[in-house]
Amino acid sequence: MPSKREPALYDRQQERPVVDVLFFGKMADIVGARTRRIDAGGMYLFTVRDDVFKSALKDGRVTLSDIRMSINRRQVTADVALSDGDEVAFFSIFSGG
């Protein structure tokens, strides 16, 4: 029986492992997208972050301390190896009441 996560595990057209990347708030505005799907093979979180925000970091629209990250809905601060089917999210500092 296939798992619920199976559709996120492989790009059906290319038959390769993928990671879904989500962007929220200011990070979505900077990237110009709310989602991306990337090749998961051997990737680490900081590599994805640095690649996605390369131009924004270079021109000062964002700093590393502005970017918050989560993997599978758990906030992380360390460089973590990504696995097939992981959901990565980038978001800015938020406040609430």
Rank of each mutant, 00 (worst) to 15 (best):
T47Q: 15
D59H: 14
K58G: 05
V76L: 08
V31M: 09
R61E: 12
L82G: 02
I93R: 12
S65G: 08
S92V: 03
S65H: 09
A8R: 14
D50R: 13
T63I: 09
F24A: 09
K54P: 01
E15D: 13
A81M: 13
G85R: 04
R73Q: 15
D29Q: 14
L64R: 15
T47V: 12
T77H: 11
F91G: 02
V31I: 14
V48K: 03
M69Y: 04
F91E: 02
K26E: 14
P7G: 08
R74K: 14
F90T: 02
R5V: 10
Q13W: 11
R61M: 08
R74H: 11
V18Y: 00
V76C: 08
G60R: 04
T63Y: 04
M1H: 09
L45W: 00
G25M: 09
P2H: 02
R5C: 04
R73D: 11
V19M: 06
Q75D: 08
A28P: 02
G32T: 05
Y10C: 03
S3L: 14
Q14E: 14
P7Y: 11
K4S: 08
D84V: 13
A56P: 05
D29I: 04
D59I: 13
D50A: 10
N72Y: 08
R61T: 13
R49A: 12
E6W: 04
T47S: 14
R68E: 08
G60Y: 05
F24K: 01
F90K: 00
M1C: 06
V52E: 06
R16P: 00
G41N: 14
K4D: 07
N72I: 10
T47Y: 04
L64F: 05
S92C: 06
D50S: 12
V48E: 02
A78H: 12
T63L: 10
E6I: 12
L22T: 01
L57F: 04
R12A: 14
F94P: 00
S3Y: 07
D66M: 04
V80G: 00
R68Y: 09
E87G: 01
P2R: 03
D11H: 14
E6R: 10
F94W: 06
R12N: 07
T47I: 10
G97K: 06
E6G: 05
L45Y: 03
Q14R: 15
R61Y: 08
V52W: 02
D50T: 11
F46W: 12
V88T: 05
K54T: 04
P17M: 04
L64C: 02
